[in-house]
Design a protein around this nucleic acid. Structure first.
Ligand SMILES: [Mn+2]
Ligand SMILES: [Mn+2]
Ligand SMILES: [Mn+2]
Ligand SMILES: [Mn+2]
Lengths: 221, 221
DNA sequence: GATTTTTTTTAGATTTGTCTAAATATTTTT
DNA sequence: AAAAATATTTAGACAAATCTAAAAAAAATC
């Protein structure tokens, strides 16, 4: 696989994430995600189109081509393996790993990444519960659901969280919720969307709708 | 400490190494070391001078300032810690680590590097035997000597090697010489500079002048 | 369906790091 | 001490990635 600049990689990865949720990615969306101007984004889209990483027609938004998706998955693989390394081996907290991995992900040496993967014991998910693509770009798609959409009185297991901030981590630690935690929703209140949840051998907890929106669950494995 | 671009860091590090051996570093020397044109080098020297990292007067060559040396030592610290990680944890061979560390060294997050240092057990030297600066920029200066200058019949210990290529590694492995190996020089031949050396419990070995020039030794610890 | 608003693209500049070719300074040789 | 050779700097250009402001296209509103 060819090599891409740090900028190109950041755009490619951002498009990948944005196109997960919805149709074509728009210029403004991408510009906001990457903190550049829409004008810069258009320039880069032309370039990535030329390199056949992108399907792009002016004014129509864009999607990654098959080749572009492969590149994206390789960047995501690097990012998540480094996140795992930082959390597991260097004892960084959850909210610290993302920013550092944002830089490390651009060191694109295949042998390095595969050796790192092996050293870490081929982890399946990163510290936020997101799956790590394998060398060929295969990525596990566990059908997770937002906690707000989970049926009442049904045991669930936390599989991932979508907010990676220190503030969210503080709250989750206080409530003793982490990736893998089992819980069930006892009651939901329409007034503010808050809910009462039950963890094994713990008193009932109340969590806000805002928190619930950032927690993703699945059936107890 | 401020942040510098990848290019700036590569120049700074190269100057540091070049000025170790001799007086002022010259434009052509540096251009050759970094694989750029002399013109580009002059441009960069002006820039680094402006940033007070360099003492530079046109046509007179350059040396790092105190501040510039600190920056250089911080880059070298990152480089050598990653080299150690790659060799020790990811099982890369000696000749592979340098190229990868050349990229990793530019991820300049102090906390990352200090945690890595701790994780590795605060190693004193990198896989080639070169000392690793500490957080404050202190670097051990063991007074090593080139094997070609070592007195005959005197026990020596290999402390470092200056060629990091796979070809040199192949030869050293064949001769069973590595960092820490004890040896003494039995005989030197003026004709081609070759020498016979003795390792404990091994038959006499002959090595070329070229090899001896890249091996550095010290008194048996 | 015309008008207004929003989105996207284009035009033109700027910064960084690089190059080649030409000019200038220094060093070496005669 | 001139002349020749070498080293260094300057001049001018270019690619990449960014920006702001203006123009053009699309979408939303009336
Ligand atoms: Mn990044
Ligand atoms: Mn993550
Ligand atoms: Mn480097
Ligand atoms: Mn080294």
């Amino acid at each position: 696989m060819l090599n891409y600049s740090v900028s190109e990689e950041n755009y490619i990865k951002a498009i990948y994430h944005l196109q997960q949720m919805g149709q074509n990615v728009t210029t403004n969306q991408l510009a906001a995600a990457i903190h550049t101007s829409p004008a810069s984004t258009t320039d880069m889209m032309k370039k990535l189109k030329n390199k056949k990483l992108l399907n792009y027609k002016p004014y129509q938004g864009f999607r990654l081509s098959v080749g572009g998706s492969k590149v994206a998955l390789s960047i995501i693989r690097r990012h998540r393996l480094w996140e795992y390394f930082l959390a597991e081996k260097l004892k960084f907290t959850w909210d610290e790993v993302h920013a550092i991995a944002e830089d490390l992900e651009h060191v694109s040496n295949t042998k390095l990444i595969n050796r790192l993967d092996e050293f870490l014991g081929f982890p399946g998910v990163d510290p936020h519960g997101d799956p790590i693509p394998d060398e060929k770009g295969n990525i596990a798609t566990h059908a997770k659901k937002c906690l707000t959409d989970w049926p009442l009185q049904t045991t669930a297991q936390v599989v991932s969280v979508s907010d990676h901030s220190g503030k969210m981590l503080e709250l989750l630690e206080h409530k003793k919720i982490k990736i893998g935690t089992k819980l069930s929703v006892r009651k939901k209140f329409d007034f503010d969307g808050s809910m009462e949840i039950k963890l094994p051998r713990q008193p009932l907890l109340t969590i806000s709708e805002q928190l619930a929106k950032n927690i993703f669950v699945n059936h107890d494995a």
